[in-house]
Design a binder for these strands. Structure first.
Lengths: 253, 253
DNA sequence: GGCTATTGTCTCATTCTGCGACAATAATAA
DNA sequence: TTATTATTGTCGCAGAATGAGACAATAGCC
């Protein structure tokens, strides 16, 4: 986990937060055949971590997740999915966290609350990375998109968390596709072509898909609405445009 | 959540446990076309709850789950699956918990740690209910199997937790089938017929399945080993016996 | 030795999926 | 205006997967 604290909040006991419980985020960013995730970097330490946060005493768990995500991406009303809760003792190595704090000029006592054990609830999101304005938290220096295929070494068990998030994203893509698009900053533009959608799928699944089978499957999901308009782009046949149905039927498994 | 504490542990601050974090269990029990779950009852209160527990300071989350489950069922080495973490504020209504403690002769202070907010990690298991010896925890009076189709009213959000566990159990049944059987107290007896397996599926999924299609599908999963022996049961053709392969291949989705 | 309920397997129709074919077409170039 | 070209929508086919019934084999019972 990591931290959306203001500097004043670091030294006190973090008393406004639920103790020992954190949130970790795997924020997938898609745009034009690229899949990235958002990472924090701690200068002078060479350490990278997933964005994270804590839960306020009077805040729902899922609301806390939405709040922290908004703080990191400046995007509100994001579609978030909880995917696993990580609670191994081994996952929390105090050395990196101590290095991060000392690089910030803080010398924590041995039982500083940030150096204790945390259980962390993992969430993932999928957004258009051109629409986010990444903002580092108070302990980190940069908050940047990294290609999923070229991630730096991450602290703690964050590599495992990314892996599990990716598996869940892939497995539930059909089911969550509408969700990713019905919020403030949709993943695809409001209207899009079948080719746009296919590029999204291919990038996330990491494999090419056959065009006609893909079209057939997408239409059979019943979540798309075909618009009668056409495109004005390249020197070739104009594709139909689509948008996601509101109140789309939930696909039956 | 609920509690595996000894009476002495109730009044102190539960200092050995991670604060604010609990475990809730949906322990499915199967036997001969019956699907039940394990519930605790608190006498003199009419309240029913899922078994639950807490995590020790120096204990892995999943190990804590295994420990508590062993305490409730006397079964060690159980196959457990984490399925969701529940963190709404509304889920923790203090009134039932206070009633439970007062029925036990304890008068908790307003900020007693058991009356504070808990975030709870949900786990489910699936065992043969004839092999468990249910043991109530220190706050409850009985620990009993209840038919899933006739559950009493549960405290807090426990009905929702059961619902979500059942959905996950059904969705992941193929994938976890070997898991449920390769531990100390297997779900099915060591060797079993295809009809036994079909009854298990029909009971869990809550719908009848076609015999020949079911057989074809089960064999195609590649997790069964057919034994050349035969049965000696009724006045009819003897079925083959099966057992689960060790090192069965993971079914590809 | 016949009877009967259950089992293993086969077959057939239907649906789903992978994959290529082909005509339609929209902008550009000639 | 016409030819060119890349891309698109759809169709068709082969193979796989699935639903559903048919039928012979058989193990114990009377």
């Amino acid at each position: 986990m990591s931290h959306q604290l203001s500097p004043e909040e670091i030294s006190p006991a973090g008393v406004d937060f639920l103790p020992g419980l954190a949130l970790d985020f795997v924020i997938f960013g898609f745009h034009q055949n690229q899949l990235k995730i958002l990472l924090l970097e701690y200068r002078n330490t060479g350490l990278f971590a997933l964005p994270g946060g804590f839960i306020r005493q009077n805040e729902n768990l899922n609301d806390a997740a939405r709040r922290v995500l908004a703080e990191r991406t400046s995007l509100t009303d994001i579609f978030l999915e909880q995917f696993y809760t990580f609670g191994d003792l081994a996952r929390y190595d105090v050395a990196p966290m101590r290095a991060i704090m000392e690089a910030k000029g803080i010398t924590p006592t041995d039982n500083h609350w940030l150096l204790r054990r945390f259980v962390s609830v993992g969430y993932y999101a999928l957004i258009d990375f051109t629409k986010a304005v990444p903002i580092p938290d108070s302990l980190s220096d940069t908050c940047t998109w990294y290609e999923l295929t070229a991630l730096p070494t991450l602290i703690q068990d964050h590599r495992l968390i990314v892996q599990k998030a990716l598996e869940t994203l892939r497995a539930d893509l059909d089911r969550n596709l509408t969700g990713f698009n019905q919020w403030a900053a949709p993943l695809l533009s409001d209207i899009f072509t079948m080719a746009d959608l296919q590029r999204l799928y291919e990038t996330i699944l990491g494999q090419p898909l056959h065009r006609s089978s893909f079209q057939r499957k997408m239409l059979s999901l019943g979540i798309l609405e075909r618009l009668d308009k056409k495109y004005s782009g390249g020197a070739h046949k104009a594709p139909y445009l689509y948008r996601f149905r509101t109140n789309s039927p939930v696909p039956i498994k």
